[in-house]
Design a protein around this nucleic acid. Sequence first.
DNA 1: ACCGCCCATGAAAACGTTTACGTTGGCTCT
DNA 2: AGAGCCAACGTAAACGTTTTCATGGGCGGT
Lengths: 355, 355
Amino acid sequence: MATATIKDVAREAKVSVASVSRALNGGTGVTAATSERIRAVADRLQYIPHAAARMLITRRTHTVGALLPDLHGEFFSELIRGIDLAARARGLHLLVSSSHDGVEEAAVAVRSMRGRVDGLLILSGRVDAGFLRANVPKALPVVLLNSAVKDSTYSVLNVDNHAGAEAMVKHLLEAGHADVALIAGPDDNFDARQREQGYRAAMAEYAPDVALNIVTGDFTDASGYRAGRELLARKTLPQAVFAANDMMAVGCLSAFRNAGVRVPQDIALAGFDDIPIARHVTPALSTVRVRIADFGRLALGLLADRLEHPEQESPSTDTLGFEIVVRDTCGANTSTGPSVGPFNSSKQAARGGEQ
Amino acid sequence: MATATIKDVAREAKVSVASVSRALNGGTGVTAATSERIRAVADRLQYIPHAAARMLITRRTHTVGALLPDLHGEFFSELIRGIDLAARARGLHLLVSSSHDGVEEAAVAVRSMRGRVDGLLILSGRVDAGFLRANVPKALPVVLLNSAVKDSTYSVLNVDNHAGAEAMVKHLLEAGHADVALIAGPDDNFDARQREQGYRAAMAEYAPDVALNIVTGDFTDASGYRAGRELLARKTLPQAVFAANDMMAVGCLSAFRNAGVRVPQDIALAGFDDIPIARHVTPALSTVRVRIADFGRLALGLLADRLEHPEQESPSTDTLGFEIVVRDTCGANTSTGPSVGPFNSSKQAARGGEQ
DNA sequence: ACCGCCCATGAAAACGTTTACGTTGGCTCT
DNA sequence: AGAGCCAACGTAAACGTTTTCATGGGCGGT
């Protein structure tokens, strides 16, 4: 525990520090016998190389930074989990800096990471190409998550919001619901905009004669509730509602239930994300599933690849797939018998809050 | 962006590197005029001190490590969020390493953080005093979360599982449910054991004549479902069920619903944690709320205090308060609106200013 | 006018590594 | 047996800071 240095190991093993470094790192340039002796001493002294000293000379930190907005909930934790898992697998450390919504906050965050990370993972609705150019050293590899920037300097990985939304709306239409209303997300959110575009595309393609019907929320369940009441207040009820995320769908579901409107008999409903709540509400929510942990894992993979082959691969823009999860709220679940309980389906054993 | 060093600044400002360091750090020992000039140059060159070099000489990383188990869900994200918020407020970076359940994994994780962090936040059911002594340099401040370790070397911050469970069981009893069954968590889990003890304490105190009724789960919703079926299969149904966490309560609720047993008319039900799902299931779940973000915030505060005053305050063991959240499943909600009764423990109340 | 003091500043050491470059020694090849 | 060569190893520089110590000059006090 006395924090032995490389010199201590060298002295004990009666070799130079250079040999210790060689024995412990490359392994080359040192005889098997001495290497063994050095390792033995290092073990005995519990020698651990001083990270900072190594960073200083190596110019590599073996750390990646994750810049995230102030989001709560399942999405956040799953994302970090995926990133962390992939990082550990590659021997990288993870420096997280979440909870900054403002551009200015993000700027200080990225600046404060200067020299502490080898690369950056950025998820933020606010940062654009200009921000990046101004605040990120151009030598630093960056992977953008769910971002609209199209700059070949940066890799981009997006959830396929457009196609997911389009597919779900198409599904609702094909299930016989002639008009589908949208509960949109906030205007300034990239995902929200893409999902709305997916809704518009599906309507234009498969229900060109139906008027669009959009109310706007802010991704919270409360806003979904309000949106549901707003829809109820109109003269004609749509046959189906597609909410831009599950939280709003859940809120909307509550509004319908409170108003005595039955789902899916009176109106169909679907969300986006497949958060765990989705399968636990009654009736279970049909939704678009995106595997968020995979999202994080993939993003880190992209970043790590660029770290390992600095010049080799040019930044790519990539897209993560989705699945349509048909449960009870969309009225298309033809399966007989009692509605499929949460445990008859696949793995998905969610764990409790405790370890 | 060309990564200017302190030498560049010194040269441009026509001073020595020492003066640059003084001007930018302490501010003392350098004239106001030159200080101003130096700052101007530093700004112009976008100079950012090299973190590793500073760490090397300073022996401080301004980073804390968070060692977490492989948990998903709200608990995880809220915890990190609280920690991160508090860390940023104090100018600390956060290095997270989650997703290791085994002791061995945790050991390599903590070893790999050697020299990269000034302190450690550890949440893990598996680490004990012996593990810490073996793997953590004793100079490194450690704050343990939800840990049974009672070693004055380490600070400990616990959720008040015992009092929370006791209060909820008492609440159920006082609501007129004569016998309360427990769906316990896994034996090897610290929280689970404490909650069970809280249950036992409440029963001993307020319903001494009632036989205990305990079935064991593993904190997953699936195990809660099984536990619910098991309770239904017995000759007599308890009047109330207290599940050691919300996920199991939710699973149990599904079991009851599928069996046609009405909640709360036929049987009352309560959980622990107040995860977001709790308010969205039907009927809404009564539970014990613990403010997880505050938990993280508090833990980081404890750690940061010890970093700033190394010898001053001795490690403390502390406890986070809770609230009983009365919703619909416990059958005690007579009012129309949701009622929330605060049941803060004394220690938590004392820390009120910390928010 | 001289002595001394303090304060701003510079020079250099130190932190713990990695690595380029020399220096050995033993081996092979003639 | 001598020349040459390669592998093993040591020496020392370098990374970018902070900090200790030395040095100088300006200024107040006598």
